[in-house]
């Protein structure tokens, strides 16, 4: 195999120039070359979203992008989201107990930040749909949804559009056409995986 491409990126505000093998995945570049291990590798099959970062402001699964494709891009990882870990979404995850083992959390936070960029005042159903690419095997998503909603309000969204403690109403797979936000499906069908 021939040429070794050069990539020029800005990652968490720092400019990097590196030669990378074409097959190097972005997640491996971040973790193994730059030591940015705040972003974990979860499934390696594009399903779980644990490795979500922002590329030019949009959420991307960094296992599904080559480092060479990031040439010229600005990337934000969980490590660069806020200098002290104090982004409103991060604080809300802590306050609402939105994690147990924490493995999915970096990706979940990055996906949630992107969701709130696009929809600053999401309903519970919109939060669940917006996070459908991120799997959590511990929490059942209830506190994650609450945390995102709490962050939305902290960041300036107007009203509480979500009822507290709807655990009993969350149905795996959801109810087609259900009106109540409390009946929306959980982001991975509620724990069946695939």
């Amino acid at each position: 195999m021939g040429r070794v491409p050069r990539v020029h990126t800005t990652i968490d505000g720092v400019v990097y120039q590196d030669e990378v093998e074409p097959r190097l995945l972005l997640i491996h570049y971040l973790r193994d070359r730059l030591g940015k291990v705040g972003t974990p590798i979860g499934c390696d099959t594009s399903n779980c979203g644990a490795c979500t970062v922002h590329v030019d402001g949009l959420s991307v699964k960094s296992c599904s992008m080559l480092a060479v494709q990031a040439d010229g891009c600005a990337i934000t990882t969980i490590e660069g989201l806020a200098p002290d870990g104090g982004h409103p979404v991060q604080r809300a995850f802590a306050d609402c107990h939105a994690l147990q083992c924490g493995y999915c959390t970096p990706g979940m936070v990055m996906a949630a930040v992107d969701l709130l960029r696009e929809n600053p005042d999401p309903s519970e159903a919109e939060i669940r749909e917006g996070l459908e690419g991120n799997l959590c095997r511990c929490t059942g998503y209830v506190n994650i949804v609450r945390a995102v909603r709490a962050a939305a309000e902290e960041m300036g969204a107007p009203g509480a559009r979500i009822h507290p403690a709807p655990e009993a109403a969350v149905l795996p797979g959801g109810v087609p056409g259900a009106e109540s936000a409390a009946h929306a499906s959980a982001p991975a069908g509620g724990g069946t995986g695939r």
Partner: peptide, 9 residues
């Protein structure tokens, strides 16, 4: 199609 992160790329 898939999920938001996949739709971004």
């Amino acid at each position: 199609v898939a999920d938001p992160a996949v739709r971004h790329r």
